[in-house]
Design a protein around this nucleic acid. Structure first.
Length: 266
DNA sequence: ATGGTAGAAACTCTA
């Protein structure tokens, strides 16, 4: 089975690209971020026509997450229990015995900003909830835009980015804390090309100049990491006309979803 | 020196 994540930066603009991508890659699950749509305006008929069911939690203008899934989802949750946040950034669902969490971590703007403090606080709260989710769901995957480059090799110019938002030490520590809960960075389970990134700023021709960061991730619990056979970044959509500034990330798992019995078979 | 581009929305904010 294939799990994927893509920050589309407006689903309204990117819907044709998403439909093309679904057809080409046929993932079992696709997590979307920055849909920027209220749920009432989500393009459900178009997604269903492509063979996917929709779970979404969105708002006007900013943020918004969704999970597109071939198989039925249950136990959907659109907020971290006990943490009321008007910003729609998290969506969890159980799909055939697999717990999937789609997330859009706050960007943080700059390290001296109120938004940066919100980001670190958000990660703290998310981490506590994740501990609880992991205790209930050994087969768990967290996919999304983490807005954190975990290591120097995930940044085109680590010296330039040192201490900057997306690569600052407190953010990297927060990422390590999540990974330390028994989650594996699927991308780093395999040998990868150097300078592998998932986001390139629209400005200064960053994509053409290969000035990117790897900030979109798929984290897998140990049980799922053992079944993971590949993980890659698909940079092709970043070459499109009117592209998202992010590329999709795909993980392949040697598992079969059995939605009838909600079990997973190796 | 704080640039630049894109999206949504509404003359600005967020990334």
């Amino acid at each position: 089975m294939k799990l994927a994540t893509w920050n589309v930066n407006s689903l309204k603009v990117r819907l044709p690209q998403v439909l093309d991508w679904l057809k080409l890659h046929q993932p079992d699950v696709l997590c979307l971020q920055e849909t920027k749509l209220e749920d009432a305006n989500f393009p459900v008929p178009e997604i269903q026509a492509a063979g996917y069911q929709v779970l979404c939690s969105g708002q006007k203008t900013y943020n918004g997450v969704a999970i597109l899934t071939r198989d039925a989802a249950r136990e959907a949750l659109a907020e971290i229990p006990g943490y009321s946040d008007p910003q729609k950034r998290v969506l969890a669902a159980t799909i055939g015995g697999l717990r999937v969490i789609c997330l859009y971590v706050p960007n943080g703007q700059s390290v001296d900003s109120e938004k940066y403090r919100y980001k670190l606080g958000w990660l703290e709260v998310f981490g506590s909830w994740l501990t609880h989710e992991l205790s209930r769901h050994p087969r768990l995957a967290v996919l999304g835009d983490f807005n954190i480059a975990p290591a120097p090799r995930d940044v085109h110019d680590p010296a330039l980015w040192e201490g900057k938002v997306l690569f600052s030490e407190p953010e990297r520590e927060a990422f390590c804390r999540l990974a330390g809960m028994g989650l594996k960075d699927a991308f780093r389970l395999f040998e990868q090309p150097e300078r592998s990134f998932t986001w390139w700023d629209y400005r200064m021709q960053a994509f053409r100049r290969k000035m990117g960061l790897r900030i979109d991730h798929i984290l897998l619990s140990d049980a799922l990491a053992k079944a993971c056979t590949a993980c890659s970044i698909d940079i092709e959509p970043r070459r499109n006309e009117r592209p998202s500034d992010h590329a999709p990330v795909i993980a392949e798992l040697n598992l079969i979803i059995d939605s009838g019995s909600s079990r997973i078979e190796a």
